[in-house]
C-alpha cells in the first residue's frame, strides 16, 4: 500500500535532509521521524518524508532472523508439533 524506499542521509539542513537512494539523491522531510537523524543514518522514505530511522544493527538482526528461519531445525519443528498436539484445541 505504501511505496517506501530506504536511503542514506547525506546532509541535513533544519528539517530537510538530502538522502542518497542507491545512486540518486533527493530531499526528504524530517518532521515525523521519532529519533534524531544524522548524516550517515539510514531512513525509510515515503512520499518525500522520512517515516523511520533504520537502525543498522536491526538490519543485521533481520538477516540473522532469516538465517534462523531458513535453518529451522527439525527439533524445533518436532517440539512445535508436540506443542500443537498438547494445546490442540486452540490450534
Amino acid at each position: 500500500m505504501c511505496l517506501s524506499v530506504p536511503g542514506r542521509v547525506v546532509s541535513i539542513d533544519g528539517m530537510t535532509a538530502v538522502v542518497d537512494f542507491w545512486g540518486v539523491r533527493r530531499q526528504v522531510q524530517l518532521h515525523i521521524v521519532d529519533e534524531p537523524v544524522a548524516p550517515g543514518d539510514y531512513v525509510l522514505n515515503h512520499v518525500g518524508f522520512a517515516v523511520r530511522r533504520i537502525d543498522p544493527s536491526e538490519v543485521a538482526k533481520t538477516l540473522a532472523l532469516f538465517e534462523e528461519l531458513m535453518a529451522g531445525g527439525s527439533d524445533d519443528l518436532l517440539a512445535a508439533e508436540i506443542h500443537a498436539q498438547l494445546g490442540g484445541d486452540d490450534a
Binding site: V5, F21, W22, G23, V24, R26, N45
Partner: peptide, 12 residues
C-alpha cells in the same frame, strides 16, 4: 543503470 533503477524504485 543504477541511477535509473534507483529512480524506478523511488517513483514506483
Amino acid at each position: 543503470r543504477h541511477p535509473v533503477r534507483a529512480t524506478a524504485e523511488l517513483l514506483g
